[in-house]
Nucleic acid binder design. Sequence first.
DNA 1: ACCTGAACACCGTTCAAGT
DNA 2: ACCTGAACACCGTTCAAGT
Lengths: 240, 240
Amino acid sequence: MRPGPRRSLTHAEILDAAFGLLEAKGFEAVSVRGVAGVLGLTPTAMYTYYPNKGALLAGMVEQVLGRLDTRGADAAAAASSNAGDAAGPGASAARARTRIVTLAEGLRSILVERPGAVGLLLATPLDGPNARRLDERLLGAFTDAGLDPVQAGRATHAVRVHVLGAVAFDAAEVERAAGAPVPADIEAAPAASATLWDDAETFPLGDRSRELADDPAARFAWGLERLLDGLLAHPASARS
Amino acid sequence: MRPGPRRSLTHAEILDAAFGLLEAKGFEAVSVRGVAGVLGLTPTAMYTYYPNKGALLAGMVEQVLGRLDTRGADAAAAASSNAGDAAGPGASAARARTRIVTLAEGLRSILVERPGAVGLLLATPLDGPNARRLDERLLGAFTDAGLDPVQAGRATHAVRVHVLGAVAFDAAEVERAAGAPVPADIEAAPAASATLWDDAETFPLGDRSRELADDPAARFAWGLERLLDGLLAHPASARS
DNA sequence: ACCTGAACACCGTTCAAGT
DNA sequence: ACCTGAACACCGTTCAAGT
């Protein structure tokens, strides 16, 4: 069978195969050749659908962020049914904060659900339509909360950084727990000239608080709330 | 010349070659074979020094974080010479905040200086001696500022996430500006069921604030200060 | 201990050719 | 337009062998 039965796959089918690979064998296993193999295609046939591997990954990112939409709508429905029509001063700011938390938690849960998806987000520029829509929502919420455009832009960036960074760290910790121990490799570390830090002595705190290590979800939620405390502290342009 | 002149390289020489590759051609170019090539070795000879590629990368991470030590000491000296012996209430908390900012800004500047180094940090578990020492310092500073051990651990994590996440995003933006345009790829994005978000309309804010996009250093500093505002807002155990 | 050379099982991508 | 097959220039890693 030389030219093949001309199956004419849809992008959705190709992305499904790619996500199957991602879930089964991790981000590293998502290769042009691998996806082609799952689909029964020759690697070169993939270049009919995507001009390069980056475009494939961008397509996957868009699909992941697309799930945030449909799910976020449900969460917003539940939240708004509780809120009623309260109209105290700062009520719209409070609703804006809830919206931000909903978006951030939603994005996190989607990324946690699909192990390997973080690698995707970090490896691909987040400038597709769904990524932009997420940005617009955060931007709108921060504006509603009283931030000026520049502050809202920076705050949006900070939230994006916090969500992706936190999930990336959690994923790395999972890998470390499951994976191989890290080699000693003594020579690599130049001895610190620790003289001026001596007010800090040598801390035995690290091991203790690392053993108390709470679950990633709680840690994330706490950090997000603290970040929002800081971002939303000064309602108007009282800051430079 | 079969067995070669038995040069017996040091780890430092190997890491230098690896960093040369990193700076010249980016993180992707840091390969076992590539480093071996620069050193005039056969790829397999590398496995005499490092058991695998991960160990090589871990060695590089440790060297990067080691630079933070020597540099942080200088910065601390300059800062403390200005501070004098002020003893008002909250003075130690203020000094702790300064220490945190110094560490975070120092780590960021080191990562920004070495393009490609972020990829390194994100690809490698941060559990070497220098990484732990950085953790201990942040932990100690947050404890000095009045946080209990669990809060200090979470706060340390939040700062780490913020620094690495922000630098990773900046790096991605630089790549995007220099690299190829992203293909349209329409079919991948499932249309959002946008019904419930309609109070936000469609925001034209995005493009405006993206054009005003301030420089990454200012954006980072602002976000870090806001995060610390939130993390250090309540001095004692007034929080759950 | 340090190194070579051959080999295995992979990558992304291009090109000429077929239907 | 969609696909194959051969090819190019790469990966990380293992193994047997040399000094």
